[in-house]
Structures are given as C-alpha cells and as structure tokens.
Nucleic acid binder design. Sequence first.
DNA 1: ATGGTCGCTTGGCGA
Length: 267
Amino acid sequence: MKITTWNINSVRLRLPSLQRVVETISPDIICLQEIKVVTELFPYKDIAALGYPHQAVSGMKGYNGVAILSRLPLTEIGTKNWCGREDCRHIFATVECRDLGPLEIHNFYVPAGGDIPDPKVNEKFGHKLKFLDEVAAWQKNLGEGGDNRVLVGDINIAPLETDVWSHKQLQKVVSHTPVEIMALNKLQAAGPWVDAIREVIPTEELIFSWWSYRSKDWTVNNRGRRLDHIWVTEALRNKIVDADILRDARSWEKPSDHVPVTLTLKI
DNA sequence: ATGGTCGCTTGGCGA
C-alpha cells in the first residue's frame, strides 16, 4: 500500500499536477493539505475520475483545508478542531486492509507559526505550540484497539539537523527552533510513533520536501526543509518497505512549494 | 537586516 502526503497549495489550481502525481506514483491513498477551497466546491468528480472515488474533505474559503483521497472505501470519517478554532487542519478516516484489519489515517496541517519564534510577541507561534501540545495530549487517550495508525501531513517542522539545508543558520528560524522540535518530539513519543521516512532514508542523508517560492531558482542553493512527514505506529514498523520524495515535482509547471512524500507498506 | 514569490482574491493576509 502506498500512502502519499502532499501540501498541494490549492487543489483547484493544481489538478493537472495531481494527475501527474497519480501517474508517477500511483498511490492507494493521497492526503492533501492546503486545498484552499470550501468543502462544497471541492472537485470531487475530477478526482474520482483520477481513480479516487472515496474522498474525505474538510475545506474552508481561501485558507488551509485537508482531504483524504482513496482507492479503497473510507469508513469512520471525521474531523477535529484544535485550539478552539474551526480551521480545517485535521481529518481522519479508516481503511480496511485485507490481512491487517482496520488502518486509521490522520492527516494534519499544523500551523506554520509566523516569522518570530516567540509566543509572547507572535500569536501565531503560540498557536503552533498549543496545537502540538493539544494533539499530544489527545494522542495519549487514543484507544489501544487502533494499533495500526498512520499520521501524515504538513507538520511545518523540520526536526533533524539533516532535515534542513543548514542546521546552523536555521536555529532561530521558525520550523527548526528547539522549542518546536521539543514539542514535536513530545507528540511523537505520545504515540508511540515511528518516523517512517527516516526508517528508510538514513539520518545522515539530507532530505527536503519544501523549497520556498521566494527564490529565483530553488535548485541553485537547494535551500530546502523537510516539513512533510509520515509516521506509523510501532505495530507497523516491520511493514515499512519504501519511502520516496518526489523532488522532480518542484520543477513542474506551476509547482506547489511542497512535493509529495510517499510511504510504501507491505500490507 | 531586508526582501524575495505564490494563492486567494482585488487589498491584504498567510505561507
């Protein structure tokens, strides 16, 4: 089973790119973030025609929004609000796997956190930290029955030194500050979650999933960050067979600033 | 230290 996560940055604008992702990777499940469209105007038919008739969507006007697209039926679809806001940052669903049984998928779009990494002067950074704390606390209460879980999304944090182009130069840049990374590690430990991509790609290797739009040519300096993640519960660790980052997608026509990240599980 | 570019919308916000 292939599961892909991708911050698409407007699903309507990038339908041709989504088709290309399908042709290139052929995922069984695609989790999207920043669809930037209200649920009612989501392009259900176009996406069903791409081979994904089962769709779970939580969208709002202009900002955020998440969706799960699937070749297999989705059951127990739900959304959750965090920090008292209805801002469409979390959707989940269950797929029934032949031998494994139910597989629970959680798709997140974590707040980016603004520019200044200080919650006292930057409310957005406070929101980001609170969001992570709330998810960690909720995580601890998840039933033990759902042992097979996957958590994906644009987490907006690059936790490892090799998840950024320069660990030294990004220490005080939102997405790579110690306080965020600690909050993320706390959430990860609450699972317990395994960073599935890093199970496949060694920690020594630099890997990125995002390159800023604010650069004339993103390939020149390769100043990227790994902001998009796929985690699995401990029970699924021995099912991991492959991980892939579709770097080429950053050079496609009208690219998103994020590229698809894919995990293959033997289930 | 600053500004750079996108997308959703048409003035400005969020990333």
